[in-house]
Design a protein around this nucleic acid. Structure first.
Lengths: 204, 204
DNA sequence: TCCCGTCCTTACCGATCGGTAGGCACCTTG
DNA sequence: CAAGGTGCCTACCGATCGGTAAGGACGGGA
């Protein structure tokens, strides 16, 4: 069974939106990619905004699935956190596409009234806070400290993910591959060392 | 002495490009903001691309200045690294604007042939690699490990910077301010603990 | 056979895009 | 006073934007 036109449109739209952003892609561009006219697209989706919203919705669900899979995969909270970070690292192309699109959404969220990013992000972060809290030594940390810690890890992963093409361009394929290999262990090391010394009493 | 129209246009363009992206802003939008027509803008800049390029050029120079200031501010390499990270954290509004725009550039760099991000980023990263190398314990680390470490720190800072409005929306002003306060110390702690245990022999 | 959805087309709309051509007011310099 | 450059304007261009209207090809069921 081949994919429906609608699903193909969603997939194509996701790729193009991730690559060029909402305003950088016209609905005609998306339809063209499949050899269709934009009116074909408008038959399946009422307008551009709704199409974009559906793409975002799909992505937020996929991300949630990743989180739940990571939590189910391992017993120790520390390993669950690591598993989640590894799951968020870009392995396949569509991983990178998803992260790029969410990063754009984060940037656009200021001026466009798309609450999608917000409502998916909040429970996502809350769950991870709980996860970190159940790691020995972090149980008495403040929510702010934990959130800062988490957000730094997520930032490391996501920023790296969108930088891959640029880094490959800067350093060449060989050195980039070495970097790619080094990234995950280095991330683990960061989690390890942070967990070993959760927080010095800063009292700020 | 008041700012020249040209400088005002550059400043306005920077803000709008950061907020809505290259395709999300028309040159008429930029000129309107100053009560001018787009033809006034086109008198000062040959076309939209050149204007955007000049904005990027300014930003890359400002970033370079921050790096040099951080390196000059402190004697110990570790403190220099921390100083640089703190300098990159968004304090004023224009800090956030700069980071947002560079993040967009990083996303667009894949398809638009703007080499600007690349040439500013490469020496920037190279310098920081040297900086980290001169920290005790990291001198024998591979360039890949160091780069991964650095990139994680930069990612933490930059991702947080573009997330501030969203995070404020999610958690409210009070809890967001607590997070903002917690972020810098938490970042220092991350650097501290990573420096204390530079790398376990991974041999990958 | 006729009819009715499904799926996609051509034709068209007003608005806006980046950019060009040409002119007008103002200031400086001779 | 005349000349020329500066800084901005109105008018206009073709292309493209998101979206509407209407119709045609095609398949299944009555």
């Amino acid at each position: 069974m081949t994919k429906s036109t609608r699903d193909q449109l969603l997939e194509t739209a996701r790729g193009l939106f991730a690559e060029r952003g909402y305003y950088g892609v016209s609905i005609a561009n998306i339809a063209d990619e499949l050899g269709l006219t934009k009116q074909a697209l408008l038959y399946h989706f009422p307008n551009k905004d709704k199409l974009y919203g559906e793409v975002l919705h799909q992505i937020s669900m996929e991300l949630d699935a990743k989180k739940q899979a990571a939590q189910a995969s391992s017993a120790s909270a520390e390993d669950q956190l690591k598993a989640l970070l590894h799951a968020l690292l870009p392995d396949r192309d569509d991983d990178a596409v998803r992260i790029r699109l969410l990063m754009r959404e984060l940037l656009d969220n200021v001026h466009r009234a798309s609450a999608v990013e917000t409502w998916y992000l909040k429970p996502f972060l809350m769950d991870i806070i709980d996860l970190v809290k159940s790691i020995g030594g972090w149980s008495r940390a403040s929510d702010s400290d934990i959130l800062a810690f988490i957000y730094q890890l997520l930032g490391a992963v996501n920023y790296y993910a969108i930088s891959e093409p640029t880094l490959r361009g800067i350093f060449g394929r060989r050195r980039f591959n070495a970097l790619k290999k080094a990234f995950a262990p280095q991330l683990d090391a960061m989690v390890d060392s942070a967990i070993r010394q959760p927080l010095r009493p800063q009292t700020n």
